[in-house]
């Protein structure tokens, strides 16, 4: 592996709530190499978005704060970087696209103007040059007739087109890292396929590193090089996509994959067969300690699990799982 572009180390994020402090990210570590796609997957509320916001320096203030850990971007710790430096990095070296393309665009400005803003924030270029780049980037994200579309307002575009505009805005300054937080969740599957295809194509052209966040294991398995599975604020399994999906070491990862009604699998099911399920619901983050948060729902849990202080167990040099039984080969 080449030297990591981004290394997140032992990141903890706390939130102050009416019922006391809550740890929404707990000891999260991962790395990202240039040109690589890291998929982050998990159920809603597990901390996927918070992870990306932390990297962007956008943990909501004043209630949220990074309690400990480092976020090293090419060796520079972004946790300690001053606000001015973060503004320089955001949108230029690291940029982000969000789930909801409608609310992330300003309805009262044309899309061309909003992309131009993104350029002018970071670069000192002439008006004509800006315009050229706006039209060029709209064309590159597959918007037909980009010169005309640049002068349209967000509401004049379809959902898929708006998401393309968001991608154009994120890519116009040629970032080294693109964080896409559920970029296709609000879109239909046929449009989702187009958008994912677009992100990967642009990634290859520029060798951009991508963090793709999704709750959909299908999307993650189709596009990621490496995968990180999150549960209740922790990264519970990390590794190459194929290992995590096909040789999952954590019972939660296996449950998450098994409970998807996948058409290839359900085709072979009998009428009386049922989907495998993970019993119960995700825990209240307030009630968590240092032990395995999945234990109450885990079919393999025993008394020792209840007492075990969670730690990443290394299965091989790339595959890690936070399950006591993963190390001993008890887990198939």
């Amino acid at each position: 592996m080449t030297e990591p572009l981004l290394a997140v180390e032992n990141l903890c994020v706390d939130f102050a709530t009416r019922s006391g402090p809550v740890r929404v990210l707990n000891d999260v570590s991962f790395t990202l190499a240039p040109g690589e796609t890291l998929g982050i997957v998990g159920e809603s509320g597990c901390g996927k978005s918070m992870t990306s916001l932390a990297v962007m320096g956008l943990v909501p203030r004043p209630n949220g704060r990074i309690a400990s850990g480092r976020i090293l971007f090419r060796g520079e710790d972004l946790v300690r970087a001053p606000a001015r430096r973060m503004r320089q990095i955001r949108g230029a070296a690291i940029s982000m696209i969000f789930q909801e393309p409608m609310t992330s665009l300003n309805p009262i400005f044309t899309v061309g103007r909003q992309i131009a803003e993104a350029i002018r924030l970071h670069e000192d270029v002439s008006k004509a040059e800006v315009r050229n780049r706006v039209v060029d980037v709209l064309g590159r994200v597959g918007i037909p007739d980009p010169a005309r579309r640049a002068d349209e307002y967000p509401h004049q575009l379809s959902g898929g087109m708006r998401q393309r505009v968001m991608i154009a805005m994120a890519l116009v300054c040629r970032p080294q890292i693109l964080i896409a937080d559920e970029p296709t969740t609000a879109l239909d599957v046929t449009v989702q396929a187009q958008i994912l295809d677009l992100i990967l194509r642009l990634q290859q052209e520029e060798n951009t590193a991508v963090i793709l966040i999704s709750h959909d294991m299908g999307v993650i398995s189709q596009v990621s090089d490496r995968v990180m599975v999150m549960y209740a604020g922790r990264a519970i399994e990390k590794g190459p996509c194929r290992d995590v999906v096909e040789a999952s070491a954590h019972p939660y990862t296996r449950g998450l994959i098994a409970c998807i009604p996948d058409i290839d699998r359900t085709e072979r099911m009998a009428e009386s067969d049922r989907l495998p399920t993970i019993p119960g619901i995700v825990p209240d983050l307030r009630a968590l300690g240092e032990t395995c948060a999945f234990a109450p729902r885990c079919a393999l849990a025993d008394a020792a699990c209840e007492a075990w202080k969670v730690a990443p167990i290394r299965l091989d040099d790339a595959h890690v799982a936070a399950c006591r039984k993963a190390a001993r080969g008890i887990v198939a």
């Binding site: 399920t277 019993p279 119960g280 619901i281 825990p283 209240d284 109450p296």
Partner: peptide
């Protein structure tokens, strides 16, 4: 049938 735990 699984019963959801955790009641406020």
């Amino acid at each position: 049938m699984a019963r959801d735990p955790a009641f406020h």
